Amino acid sequence: MTSELMRVLVVDDSRIFRGVLEEALAGCSDLKVVGSVWSGEKALEFAKQSLPDFVTLDIEMPGLGGLATLRALRALAADKNKSLGVLLVSSHTRRGAAVTIEGLQEGAFDFLTKPEGPNQQANLAALREQLSAKLAAYRSRRGSRNAAPQVATAVPVAASVPRKSRFSAVVIGASTGGPEALARLLPSVAPYCPVPMFLVQHLPPDFTGYFSTSLARRCGSAVVEAQDGMIAQPKHLYVAPGGRHLVLHSTDSRLVMKLSDTPPENGCRPAVDVLFRSAALACNGQVLAVVLTGMGNDGAKGSVVMKRAGAHVIVQDEATSVVWGMPGSTMAAGAAHEVLPVDEIGTAILSHLGLRR
């Protein structure tokens, strides 16, 4: 890992919140706030003169908005062949949720929501905790990458007539970096998948509905937020709602979804481990599991259960993961059958399902 201080640029149209962010960042080691600006235009001016390593970016600003600023910053970093992390700063609004999802799919490293509690000191502590965890994850990634990753887009292609496959469902788990990975992976898989697919992507409750709608638009197929009692259908992707675990049950040879408010696992609800354990049981091990980029180790224990039950587990490789926490811990647990770049996972899924692209 580099020993140099990470250079951080703060971008927010609120002078007060810029100050709050700077104060929170002052409590984080190994970084230096090198600039604090109030607009996307000013952020680009700064970055053209001296590209920072990391940017906290308000996504709802007048003038050049957050998404346009994100795209321009990433293009600038790519031109300079440099790595740039962008952390989206979002509000708890409908507009904030929708734009955040789009930004994550376009390559933002991660996001945080502005604390809105009545106690300013508690808000500052919560913000500092969020920043510390996300910056630590980015630093670990930065240490193993020197250049900006190439951005690729998955192109849907026709699949052949299916051969017989033993798998009755596909389950996917993702966290940090997941929206971008899924936007690349799913358009080439979801329209052709002959079995139901289930997804846990770590997101807050207000975000998963917009996330499902965005995936449906990108895939051109049925992507819906899971509901309690819903019966799974082929060629459908079901997204676990934020704040609730997604549990699968087998009833009369049909997969039925249940939503649970049991305590978080691995600090997460929904948790990948909960979905994976239930799928292993409900499908009698006839499951294809995929663990994508993400912070932490959610999915590792569930993948061990999957493998013992007879499931097949694919994990995303380190080189194409934003954070290799979840895939890496799954591999370390001995639960991975395959370790693949994100752009090869779609081909592998279809092949295991008896389809050839």
Score class of each variant (00 low, 15 high):
A136I: 04
R128V: 05
K134P: 06
Q130G: 07
Q130Y: 05
Q150N: 13
L131Y: 03
R142D: 09
K114S: 04
A147L: 13
K134N: 08
R141V: 01
A147K: 14
S132G: 05
T113K: 03
E129K: 14
S144Y: 02
G143P: 03
L112G: 04
T113Y: 00
Q120T: 10
A126D: 09
L135A: 00
Q121K: 15
A147I: 14
R128E: 09
Q130N: 14
R142Y: 09
S140L: 08
Q150I: 14
G143W: 03
D110Q: 10
A125K: 13
N119Q: 09
N146C: 01
A126L: 11
Q120Y: 05
R141Q: 04
N123F: 04
N119P: 06
E116R: 13
S132A: 10
L124Y: 07
A136N: 11
L112I: 15
A126P: 02
R139Q: 12
P118K: 10
L124I: 07
T113D: 00
L135G: 01
Y138K: 05
A136G: 11
L112T: 15
E116K: 12
A122G: 02
Q150Y: 11
E129C: 04
E116G: 13
K134W: 08
N146K: 11
S132M: 07
A148R: 10
R145G: 03
S132V: 06
A133I: 15
A147T: 15
S140V: 02
L131N: 07
Y138G: 03
D110G: 12
N119I: 08
K134M: 07
R139C: 00
A137I: 05
A133Q: 15
T113V: 11
R145Q: 15
A148C: 11
S132K: 13
N146Y: 03
L135T: 06
L112F: 08
S132Q: 14
R128F: 02
L124Q: 15
T113C: 05
G143N: 02
L135H: 06
K114G: 02
G117Q: 08
E129W: 01
N146T: 12
R128C: 03
L135D: 00
S132W: 03
D110K: 13
R141M: 06
E129Q: 13
S140A: 07
L112N: 05
L127Q: 02
T113H: 00
R145H: 15
Q121F: 05
F111W: 08
S140N: 10
A133G: 07
L127C: 01
N119K: 12
N146G: 06
S132D: 08
A122W: 03
Q120C: 00
D110W: 08
A137G: 06
K134T: 07
A126K: 12
G143H: 01
N119T: 06
L127D: 01
E116V: 09
